[in-house]
Each structure stands twice: as C-alpha cells, then as structure tokens.
C-alpha cells in the first residue's frame, strides 16, 4: 500500500545516508544512527542490510564488543541469510581483534578459534573461510605459546609435574604450532628432573627425529 511505499523510500534514504557515513569513515556515528534505523524500520527489506552495515561500522570503529554482540544476534536471527557467512566471519574477527598476546588472557583466542572453525565447517566455500584458515594458524600458535609460557613458569619454580602437564598439552593438542619444538625439549627436561629418564630419552629422540635442524634438538643431547 501507499504508506509502505513511503516507508520503503524513507528506509532506503536513511540506509544510503548511513552508508555514505561509513564510506566517509565516520564509523561510530554511523553505528549510532543505524541503531535507530533498526528500531525505526524493523519490517523493511533494509532491516537485515542495516544490521550488517552496523556490524561493519562497529567493527571498523573498533567497537569490537558491540560488533561481537551484533554478529552473534544476526547469526541467531538470520540463520539462512545469504550473507550469514559474513556475520560469522565478523564474529570471529571481533574476538580476533580482542585477543591478547601469548602471555595474557587466552579467552578471546579460544573464542576466535571456535568461531572460525564454525565458519569453515558451515560455509566451506565462502571467501571468508579461506581468510579464517590463515588466521587459525596464528591463533593456535598463540595458544600453544601460552601453554608453553605457563609450563616454563612452573619449570622455573621446580614444579615439574605442573610443567610437564602444560608441555604435554602442547604436544597433544597443538602439534602443528611453532611452540612444539621447545615444548618437546622442556618436556624431556621435566621428565629428567623427575627422574623419569626413559621418558626423557623418548621425548629427546622424538624431537631430534622430527626436527633435526631445530636449535632445541642440539640442546636436548644430555637427555639421550
């Protein structure tokens, strides 16, 4: 009917205005206006488009907690939307941007891994999945380094059971990460400190066999 048409034109106008703001780089203002847009035109065909634009604006405006919440609710409310892969990607990226270094809280690293894994399994052909794959490696590297750092913390304080536990986690769960060589070395060292020389030797052999050129392989000799 006529009023629907007027509303449609108004929605289009406001959506385009918000888009212009985003193009000009006024992300936070755009995100703020799009919140009102969503309340004003909930039934419009622009509603979902507006939500996606708001996710983008919040993300570009470095409001990662907001973009995280918005993407999460978009994925829940529009599970079959043609651009739901984008929302999943933004969810993962929002965590990715909030992640800490290996010596800090690993929570967001873990959440980013979960979100990227979901994106890749549900939308394997999405262009975003490819990008996610590349970032996953980096996230695994950080988490594995975190385990290694905590392990070394206990190793330095001569709490070898605690240390060995953490090194074992790297070896069991993060085999493809850069932390693996050092973890093998320290696991061998921890076993040796606990008097488990057979296990120490086994780890040393494993390290030398798989990473013959690693600097850790040359340091592990004493446990052979």
């Amino acid at each position: 009917c006529a009023s629907d048409d007027i509303e449609y034109t108004e929605a289009e106008k406001q959506y385009e205005a918000a888009k212009k703001r985003v193009e000009k780089g006024e992300y936070n203002m755009a995100a703020f206006e799009l919140e009102k847009f969503s309340a004003n035109f909930p039934y419009s065909t622009y509603a979902a488009k507006g939500e996606l634009l708001r996710i983008f604006a919040a993300y570009k405006g470095s409001e990662f907690i907001l973009s995280e919440m918005l993407s999460e609710s978009f994925v829940e409310r529009h599970p079959k939307h043609p651009h739901v892969d984008y929302a999943l990607y933004m969810l993962a990226m929002s965590h990715y941007k909030q992640r800490g270094s290996e010596s800090k809280d690993p929570t967001h690293n873990k959440l980013a891994i979960e979100a990227f894994k979901r994106l890749i399994s549900e939308h394997p052909r999405s262009k975003y999945a490819k990008d996610g794959q590349a970032r996953l490696q980096k996230l695994y590297d950080t988490i594995a380094s975190h385990e290694l750092i905590v392990g070394k913390y206990y190793f330095d304080r001569e709490r070898y059971v605690a240390a060995a536990n953490r090194f074992q986690t790297v070896i069991k769960e993060y085999q493809t990460t850069s932390a693996i060589e050092e973890s093998l070395y320290y696991l061998a060292a921890s076993y040796a400190e606990m008097g488990l020389f057979k296990d120490a030797r086994q780890m040393a052999l494993l390290l030398r066999h798989n990473y013959p050129n690693s600097e850790w392989s040359s340091r592990v000799k004493e446990y052979l």
Binding site: G100, S103, K104, D105, T107, H146, I149, V150, Y153, Y154, R157, R159, V161, A162, N165, R166
Partner: peptide, 20 residues
Amino acid sequence: QGNEKTEDAVIRRLVQQSEG
C-alpha cells in the same frame, strides 16, 4: 582470565595453589 594488560605470571605468582 581477564588479564588483558597484566602478564599471566604476574598474577600466577600470587596464586599459591600450584597446578598438579
């Protein structure tokens, strides 16, 4: 958890309970 700025060890060294 929640240590966005502080290094893990700075908090961990205040925790007397040890892993294992």
